[in-house]
């Protein structure tokens, strides 16, 4: 089936089998391997990307469902001049990653929430809820929570 995905502002005309999940198409057809698969059953959130600005588990969505829609992955998080997203800097500053496998998913969950509401970092409960949505086996989460606060309130240190 022919579909068109706009990924990180770039248009990808694709021929895909209807059964292929979005994560596989992003990783293999678009060669954007920053989106990781940690469970393939919707629990870990490592595969999170933004579809029309909303965070989705790309292992649970078919690529054909995204025909004509816009997708943002971790590769598209940097600013137009190539400067890192504040969340990317904050994750590094807070040691919010170790092996880095879960990291793109947490970044995209947070980036989506932050784009929808720039004040989210000021509400500890909402930040906590964001961190609770994904799994990280390395860090113990607290550094991720601090990084999201730091990355969403420039100048703040949680």
């Amino acid at each position: 089936m022919k579909i068109t995905l706009t990924v990180n502002d770039e248009v990808h005309p694709l021929e895909v089998e209807p059964r292929r999940v979005l994560a596989d198409v992003l990783r293999e057809d678009c060669r954007l391997t920053g989106t990781h698969l940690g469970c393939e059953h919707g629990v870990c959130g490592a595969c999170t990307v933004l579809v029309d600005g909303r965070a989705v588990r790309s292992c649970l969505m078919l690529a054909v469902q995204c025909d004509g829609r816009s997708v943002r992955t971790v590769e598209g998080l940097r600013g137009p001049g190539g400067e890192p997203h504040p969340l990317q800097r904050a994750f590094s500053a807070e040691h919010a990653l170790q092996c880095g496998f879960c990291t793109p998913g947490f970044l995209m969950v947070a980036a989506g929430a932050l784009a929808a509401d720039p004040t989210i970092g000021e509400d500890p409960d909402r930040v906590r809820a964001l961190v609770e949505s994904n799994i990280c086996r390395c860090t113990g989460y607290e550094p991720i929570r601090r990084a999201i606060v730091r990355g969403s309130c420039p100048g703040s240190v949680a």
Binding site: T33, G34, V74, P84, F91, L97, G100, T103
Partner: peptide, 11 residues
Amino acid sequence: DERLLTGGGRY
């Protein structure tokens, strides 16, 4: 960090 935070990791 830079590669792992920008989708540049290679697993």
